[in-house]
Write a protein that binds this DNA or RNA. Structure first.
Length: 474
RNA sequence: GGCGAUAUCGUCUAGGGGUUAGGACAUGUGGUUCUCAACCACAGAACCGGGGUUCGAAUCCCCGUAUCGCUACCA
């Protein structure tokens, strides 16, 4: 049986890198084994959920290339895939639990319970719900319901031990005595997470639940629910969390945390996927750079490590550059265009642009890094770096050198890096200066900047007319 | 506080009863060179602590410590 896995974000915020990695692991697992990857939106927290976030999450998933086989947009046999459209199912399940004696109506007011809890905690005591409503007689409950008194449904946690075999952590056991009777249906008739997740995972025939470590403590409650519903318990794999450099939970103060921000900053989805895959998972060898296809071939749940991982932005940069260097210039050009980064007036041909891109690859960590570096090739409107101008163009001998070089370049044939280098060195020698002096001056005159790719390659691609014009402009 | 998970270079990790504990990022030094990158070479850098099991423990077990998570009518 091919596995069925799901990613079930709550649309209360953007897709953050932790969620993205969880989604990625699920996707990789499904693709590796020819299973199904389901996307489900857990929007039962109506207060905090928004449709904008739903859209943002879809966009980030698509950007990463994590396509789903069942879910919003694409549909599927187990829909709908928004929990707020499945409310009937949860209510029916809640009532069934009451009917079978696995749950009971609770008329306690949340505020009262909260007050009792905090009072107990202030006194240093642990506090668990005391089941007072479970002791009510059937007649009493019926009367309260008939009177329209609001009530929640609580699961009656049985005594015993609840255990499950986690694919990452091995066997994990909990004493039910430490689990309090939790609410499954709130008094506003909305389900809580524990109920909706189990109802949906059963309904959608999810075989493997791959999710964040933070759910380990919730799992026994859900296992209890599976048992009460006489449903098969899926396999669980709890993946460790991603932390900030201070090992605290990743948050805004750590900088960019959402996938969308990385997209906006010019990261490649290939690099993000590669980086995220290796954060908490290892295929075992020394290889670091993986294509999407290679990841699919190698991925397995067993390779997931047990401890939390720190998000290291420097390493992401490195991955990004590695992927840029492996990508064709034509592909990069396409990405630049769709990212809206190519709106400079194009004055050179497509082929020339691709040559420029190839030249710039090793010095571009992000897509946006190409833009300022491409400018001297695409436009005559140079941006001059003051320090570079001062350093390399201020010598009184420079104007004469520039003119001499310009005139020598008029007749160079062919217009290639090699011929250009020969010519420039000859001019420098004729004037008794070191080639470096003229090279640097020429670089600043032609690019406006103190740094650039090898000067002769730059000159070749900028073109004869422009080079001469820029050299003569004093 | 209770319950749970985790612990190898600064970071991501490989490995795992007997190894010079491997790789990558970052860092440093050198090479290349017209600059900055890229690239190449080299270097420094780790098995949380304590007990036990064992001929032998970083590896297995226990305890401690630290970190993270859960402890809601959030997910």
């Amino acid at each position: 049986m091919p596995p069925r896995v799901r990613f079930a974000p709550s649309p209360t915020g953007y897709l953050h890198v932790g969620g993205a990695r969880t989604a990625l692991f699920n996707w990789l697992y499904a693709r590796r084994h020819g299973g199904a990857f389901i996307l489900r939106i857990e929007d039962t927290d109506v207060e905090r959920s928004s449709t904008d976030m739903v859209t943002a999450i879809f966009n980030s998933m698509k950007w990463l290339g994590l396509d789903w086989d069942e879910g919003p947009d694409v549909g599927g046999p187990h829909g709908p895939y928004f929990q707020t459209e499945r409310l009937d199912k949860y209510r029916a399940a809640g009532f069934a639990l009451v009917a079978s004696g696995h749950a009971y109506r609770c008329f306690c007011k949340p505020e009262d319970l909260k007050a009792e809890r905090s009072a107990a905690e202030a006194a240093g005591r642990t506090w668990n719900y005391d089941r007072r409503c479970q002791r009510r007689s059937a007649a009493e409950v019926a009367a309260k319901v008939a009177a329209g008194e609001p009530s929640a449904i609580r699961f009656l946690v049985p005594p015993g031990i609840t255990a499950f075999d986690d694919l990452v952590h091995g066997r994990i056991e909990f004493d039910n005595a430490n689990i309090e009777d939790f609410v499954v249906i709130r008094s506003d008739d909305y389900p809580t997470y524990h109920l909706s997740v189990v109802v949906d995972d059963v309904d959608m025939q999810v075989s493997d639940v791959v999710r964040g470590d933070d759910h380990i403590s919730n799992t026994p409650k859900q296992v209890l629910l599976y048992h009460a519903m006489h449903a098969a318990v899926p396999r669980f794999a709890h993946v460790p969390l991603i932390m900030g450099p201070d090992k605290k939970r990743l948050s805004k103060r750590h900088g960019a945390t959402s996938v969308g921000e990385y997209e906006a900053q010019g990261y490649l989805p290939e690099a993000m996927v590669n980086f995220l895959a290796l954060l908490g998972w290892s295929p075992g060898g020394d290889q670091e750079i993986f294509s999407r296809e290679e990841l699919i071939q190698r991925f397995d749940l067993e390779g997931i490590s047990g401890g939390n991982a720190v998000f290291n932005p420097e390493k992401l940069d490195w991955f990004n550059q590695q992927h840029i260097m492996r990508m064709s210039a034509a592909e990069i050009l396409g990405r630049l265009r769709s990212a809206g980064l190519m709106n400079v007036g194009l004055e050179i041909g497509e082929l020339q642009i691709e040559k420029v891109i190839d030249l710039l690859k090793p010095r571009s960590k992000k897509l946006a890094d190409f833009v300022p570096q491409m400018r001297p090739f695409l436009s005559d409107d140079l941006v001059f770096d003051e320090a570079a101008v001062k350093k390399h163009l201020s010598d009184p001998a420079v104007p004469g050198l520039r003119k001499a070089l310009a005139s020598a370049l008029r007749t160079v044939e062919p217009w290639t890096a090699a011929a250009l280098e020969e010519t420039l060195r000859a001019v420098a020698a004729a004037h008794g200066v070191k080639a470096g002096v003229l090279i640097h001056a020429t670089r600043v005159a032609v690019t406006g900047q103190g740094n650039s790719p090898g000067l002769f390659e730059v000159l070749e691609l900028v073109g004869r007319d422009r080079v001469i014009r820029r050299l003569e402009l004093c």
